Amino acid sequence: ERVRARYDYEAQNEDELSFKKGDIITVLEKDDGWWKGRNGKEGLFPSNYVEELE
C-alpha cells in the first residue's frame, strides 16, 4: 500500500521517517497511530500525516 504525505514531518527519533508534503511512502506495517514505511529510508511515522492514494 502506498500513501501520500499531507504535511511535512521531521523525525524526532532515529527510528522515525522524515518526509515532505506530497512524498509517496510505501506502508510496511500499520499500528495504532504509528505506521512503518519506506521512502528510500525506513521508519515510523504518524498515520494522521498521510492519506491513502486513490
Score class of each variant (00 low, 15 high):
1 E>L: 14
1 E>N: 12
1 E>W: 14
1 E>H: 15
1 E>C: 14
2 R>D: 11
2 R>V: 14
3 V>C: 11
3 V>Y: 14
4 R>V: 15
4 R>P: 05
5 A>E: 05
5 A>D: 05
5 A>T: 04
5 A>L: 02
5 A>F: 02
6 R>A: 11
6 R>G: 05
6 R>Q: 07
6 R>Y: 05
6 R>M: 13
6 R>S: 09
7 Y>C: 15
7 Y>H: 08
7 Y>V: 08
8 D>L: 01
8 D>C: 09
8 D>G: 07
8 D>A: 06
8 D>W: 04
8 D>P: 08
9 Y>W: 06
9 Y>V: 02
9 Y>L: 01
9 Y>A: 01
10 E>K: 11
10 E>Y: 14
10 E>V: 13
11 A>G: 10
12 Q>F: 07
12 Q>V: 09
12 Q>R: 13
12 Q>C: 10
13 N>T: 11
13 N>F: 08
13 N>G: 11
13 N>D: 08
14 E>I: 12
14 E>N: 11
14 E>G: 11
14 E>W: 11
14 E>L: 09
14 E>P: 14
15 D>T: 14
15 D>A: 13
15 D>L: 13
15 D>C: 14
16 E>G: 07
16 E>T: 06
17 L>M: 09
17 L>S: 02
17 L>A: 02
17 L>Q: 00
17 L>P: 01
17 L>D: 01
18 S>A: 05
18 S>G: 06
18 S>W: 03
18 S>F: 03
18 S>K: 00
18 S>I: 01
18 S>H: 04
19 F>E: 03
19 F>G: 02
19 F>N: 01
20 K>Y: 06
20 K>W: 05
20 K>L: 09
20 K>A: 09
20 K>V: 08
20 K>G: 06
21 K>C: 09
22 G>T: 03
22 G>S: 05
22 G>H: 05
23 D>P: 03
23 D>R: 00
23 D>N: 05
23 D>A: 07
23 D>T: 06
23 D>F: 03
24 I>T: 04
24 I>F: 07
24 I>H: 04
24 I>S: 04
24 I>V: 09
24 I>D: 02
24 I>W: 09
24 I>P: 03
25 I>V: 05
25 I>Y: 01
25 I>F: 09
25 I>H: 00
25 I>G: 01
26 T>I: 15
26 T>M: 11
26 T>K: 07
26 T>D: 09
27 V>W: 03
27 V>A: 03
27 V>I: 12
27 V>R: 01
27 V>H: 00
28 L>F: 08
28 L>V: 10
29 E>Q: 13
29 E>L: 12
29 E>M: 12
30 K>Q: 08
30 K>A: 05
30 K>H: 04
31 D>G: 15
31 D>K: 15
31 D>H: 15
31 D>M: 15
31 D>I: 15
32 D>R: 11
32 D>F: 11
32 D>T: 12
33 G>P: 10
33 G>T: 12
33 G>E: 12
33 G>D: 12
33 G>M: 14
33 G>K: 14
33 G>Y: 15
34 W>T: 06
34 W>M: 12
34 W>H: 05
34 W>F: 09
34 W>P: 03
35 W>D: 02
35 W>V: 04
35 W>R: 00
36 K>W: 13
36 K>H: 08
36 K>C: 12
36 K>D: 02
36 K>S: 06
36 K>A: 04
37 G>L: 00
37 G>R: 00
37 G>S: 00
37 G>T: 01
37 G>N: 03
37 G>H: 01
38 R>Y: 15
38 R>C: 11
38 R>D: 12
39 N>I: 14
39 N>T: 12
40 G>I: 12
40 G>S: 10
40 G>E: 11
40 G>F: 09
41 K>E: 10
41 K>N: 10
41 K>D: 08
41 K>C: 08
42 E>Y: 08
42 E>I: 15
43 G>M: 04
43 G>Q: 01
43 G>N: 02
44 L>M: 14
44 L>P: 01
44 L>C: 11
44 L>Q: 08
44 L>Y: 15
45 F>N: 00
45 F>M: 01
45 F>L: 02
45 F>G: 02
45 F>Q: 00
46 P>F: 04
46 P>I: 03
46 P>H: 06
48 N>K: 12
48 N>T: 13
48 N>G: 12
49 Y>Q: 06
50 V>M: 06
50 V>G: 03
51 E>A: 07
51 E>Q: 10
52 E>F: 12
52 E>G: 12
52 E>Y: 12
53 L>F: 14
53 L>H: 07
53 L>I: 14
54 E>G: 13
54 E>T: 14
54 E>I: 13
54 E>Y: 12
